[in-house]
Design a protein around this nucleic acid. Structure first.
Length: 762
DNA sequence: GGATCTCATGTTTTT
DNA sequence: CATGAGATCC
């Protein structure tokens, strides 16, 4: 059959697996998306399954869209009625269809994002008279979210101690507030679907019968709720086809549990298991490096990854003095790679935390190379965009008090804290939602209330506006509605304060309006749903010239010819918050594994000797993961050239203390090792990819002083801490120089030149 | 009621 | 350092 051409044996086995549960363990770059799409095509074409009897679930809209596109290419047309989308989108579709069967929700419930959720938690704390210092809202929210991911309702929430008892109460009230707002949070979309299925067997059966075949991508990232959902839906036909790789599970902190793979095996003991071990992406060296890192994780299911791309360029490991020099190194390499024929779009720079992108961006700007940052501050989360969304939400759903409160006095319309408080008391006494109350105030002159003067004016004006807007729904497009709102509240004037920031904010509003104008056929409800469930990351268009900057998390599922992995330091990768927890450490390791395996041709790893955190800079230790990479697979100076430069501008003994000695040792070791690795790599292996400029990084002028003491007796020097002093003695010791300096204020100090950061005063 | 300041906070974030 | 929320001042 032509459909199967070009697939390897394992892929074919997966695509053509007979009905029943199937578990595909797919290594990085092994063509799992391909298998999923071919499988769907196979079901439709060969087994004559109707598209609407198939449900495919992904984790991102992007993955869903990609799969759709590939499917269309395969089948020649878009299969009609196929359910393909993220877990959340799939659940929303079900919930919308079943609103009549939902206990606490009416039609047109809205979806609250994290910021909205936080407001609700705060409200909940306030209503319960709880101190938000003792019970921080974000921690509470985190606990609530975790519970929902575990399918734990407030009633089931274990209240073993005081704090969990409080959490249970906050959770319970939080949930009531959501009901009152006719809103669900992201987790609710999943959990409420499961709850609905649990409560209503007839509803469950309907979907069970309909979805005869269920396929799941990134199965290792499912949480308990998602897993339960899948099991319920698949209970009738048992045609559950899941694809995953526990080595790429990097969302444990979000409730994802790769042990669902094990659970799947136990609960479907007759499941067919297929391993996809051939990697079509990376060179052998890159794959070997990745394997050397991941194999240290305990309790893995071993996969024997292999590739036809034998050999390859050794992975370059480079130490920079600080994050600025690290960025220079990256930019330098990028420029060189471009001379070699790679384009900017072939490259990606990855990091553990978003904050690291800034220094990189600065250097891209300085050098003048194009780049794009994935994620960062999401468009839909920007204040000005959220404001407009809040207006739309209130218009759409008068019960949405969170959005109402957001825009109640934005832009300022003379409603202060006092009025706000009076109003809230009054409206709830009347039993009205705030939006409803403010409209009544505007429309009913006989209404009994206690407002007067300015406050009354402000309130009823807002009420009038809301009345006008709600009347427009359905009559004008969303973009036009936005125009009216923005115009009538004077939003532009409010934003434009003469600063560039104000300009940018206004530009964002226009961009948001543009997004609405793009799909004029969408109703307000549909538009809001799209905005809630689609992130801008999904719309990242490919750019041939711009280099991609992204977190390791955001990199999953992508591939690039060239990958830079930056900030390979203990405390960053692995992140400091994960150092004391074995499971979390294992996840950090997987994160690195994901990063390495994104690369097709070359990997550059960098770490800095000093790095600034929240303003002040401190000494870093190279990532512990680096020592797991076999030397013969690596290359780069890391030592001789950089060492002196790094050390000579570092801190004093007293400042870095014990740390510095440890660092010396690691450095010396890696220097010797890298010498070995260079000769090994150069001498023995013929490399298919031409190697150039592997070590072309510019030496710092300081590095030229390779022998003899830099400091002479009698020289005047300045030290950051001790001030000016006179050199008494200086001698070369090993790789370093020991300088004895007399400081008038602080006495005689013996300093390592490499750490002392001495400034010559001649 | 609104502007200004201070202070706490700060991993990752497919939805 | 950079941001945002809450407190304080005008």
């Amino acid at each position: 059959m032509s459909l199967l051409e070009g697939l390897n044996e394992a892929q074919k086995a997966a695509v053509m697996a007979p009905p029943g549960p199937v578990l595909v363990l797919a290594g990085p770059g092994s063509g799992k998306t391909r298998v999923l799409t071919y499988r769907i095509a196979y079901l439709i074409e060969e087994l004559k399954i109707h598209p609407w009897e198939i449900m495919a679930v992904t984790f991102t809209n992007k993955a869903a869209r990609e799969m759709r596109q590939r499917l269309e290419t395969l089948l020649g047309e878009q299969p009609r009625g196929l359910s393909m989308g993220t877990f959340h989108a799939t659940c929303v579709r079900i919930l919308r269809r079943e609103t009549d069967n939902l206990l606490h929700y009416g039609r047109d419930f809205v979806i609250f994002d994290t910021a909205d959720q936080l407001q609700v938690v705060k409200q909940s704390l306030k209503d319960l008279n709880l101190d938000d210092k003792k019970f921080p809202a974000n921690k509470m929210l985190h606990n609530i979210s975790n519970a929902k991911n575990e399918l734990i309702t407030p009633e089931l929430y274990a209240a073993g101690n005081y704090i969990s008892e409080v959490t249970r109460r906050v959770y319970s009230h939080y949930q009531e507030l959501l009901w009152a707002n006719n809103a669900m949070d992201f987790d609710d979309l999943l959990m409420n679907t499961v709850l609905l299925f649990e409560e209503r067997d007839d509803v469950l059966q309907k979907y069970q019968s309909r979805y005869q075949y269920i396929l799941v991508d990134e199965f290792q990232d499912t949480n308990t709720t998602q897993y339960t959902l899948l099991r319920m839906l698949a209970a009738k036909h048992s045609n559950l086809f899941v694809v995953g790789d526990s080595d790429q599970s990097i969302y444990k902190w979000r409730g994802a549990d790769f042990r669902n793979i094990q659970r799947f095996r136990e609960q479907f003991p007759d499941a067919q298991q297929i391993l996809l071990e051939q990697n079509y992406r990376s060179t052998q060296i890159i794959l070997d490096v990745a394997k050397s890192v991941i194999k240290r994780n305990p309790n893995r299911v071993h996969k024997e990854l292999f590739t036809m791309r034998t050999g390859g360029v050794p992975v370059v490991i480079r130490e920079a003095y600080n994050e600025h020099e690290e960025a220079e190194f990256v930019l330098d390499k990028i420029a060189n790679l471009m001379l070699e024929g790679y384009s900017g779009g072939d490259m990606a720079v990855m990091y553990r935390t978003n904050a690291q992108s800034r220094v990189l961006e600065e250097n891209f700007l300085r050098v003048g190379l194009p780049y794009r940052v994935v994620g960062a501050t999401e468009f839909y989360k920007r204040r000005e965009v959220k404001d407009i969304i809040a207006y739309l939400r209130v218009v759409h759903n008068l019960a949405d008090s969170v959005s109402f409160n957001r825009v109640f006095n934005v832009p300022p319309r003379g409603i202060g804290a006092k009025t706000r408080e009076n109003f809230t008391t009054w409206s709830s006494a009347m039993g009205w939602q705030p939006a409803e109350a403010v409209m009544r105030l505007a429309l009913d002159p006989d209404l009994k209330h206690t407002f007067s003067g300015r406050a009354l004016n402000a309130l009823s004006h807002f009420g009038q506006l809301l009345d006008v807007w709600t009347a427009l729904v359905g009559k004008v497009t969303v973009a036009e509605l936005i125009d009216v709102i923005v115009e009538q509240v004077g939003y532009r004037n409010y934003l434009e304060d003469g600063t560039t920031e104000g300009e940018e904010r206004w530009a964002n509003v226009l961009e948001f309006r543009g997004a609405a104008a793009e799909n004029p056929e969408l109703t307000l409800a549909e538009f809001l749903e799209q905005v809630a469930l689609v992130s801008e990351t999904d719309n990242l268009e490919e750019s041939a010239n711009a280099t991609t900057l992204l977190t390791l998390h955001a990199a999953k599922g992508l591939e690039f010819p060239i990958v830079f992995l930056t900030g390979l330091e203990d405390g960053l990768l692995p992140h400091s918050r994960s150092l004391d927890d074995g499971e979390e450490l294992a996840e950090e390791r997987r994160l690195l594994y994901v990063g390495i395996t994104r690369a097709m041709d070359r990997v550059y790893i960098s770490h800095a000797f000093r790095r600034s955190f929240y303003g002040d800079s401190s000494v870093s230790t190279p990532s512990r993961f680096l020592s797991d990479i076999p030397l013969e697979l690596t290359e780069g100076n890391t030592a001789s050239i950089r060492r002196r430069n790094s050390i000579s501008r570092a801190s004093t003994w007293s400042e870095s203390g014990i740390r510095s000695e440890g660092w010396h040792q690691t450095r010396r070791r890696s220097w010797e090792e890298s010498q070995e690795s260079q000769s090994a790599a150069l001498g023995q292996k013929p490399l298919p990819v031409p190697r150039t400029e592997l070590d072309d990084y510019q030496e710092d002028p300081l590095d030229k002083r390779k022998s003899g003491p830099q400091y002479q007796t009698g020289q005047r020097v300045r030290h950051a801490r001790f001030g000016e002093g006179t050199v008494i003695e200086s001698k070369v010791t090993g790789n370093d120089e020991e300088v004895t300096v007399a400081f008038p204020g602080d006495g005689i100090k013996r300093l390592a030149a490499s750490f002392a950061n001495l400034e010559l005063l001649d």
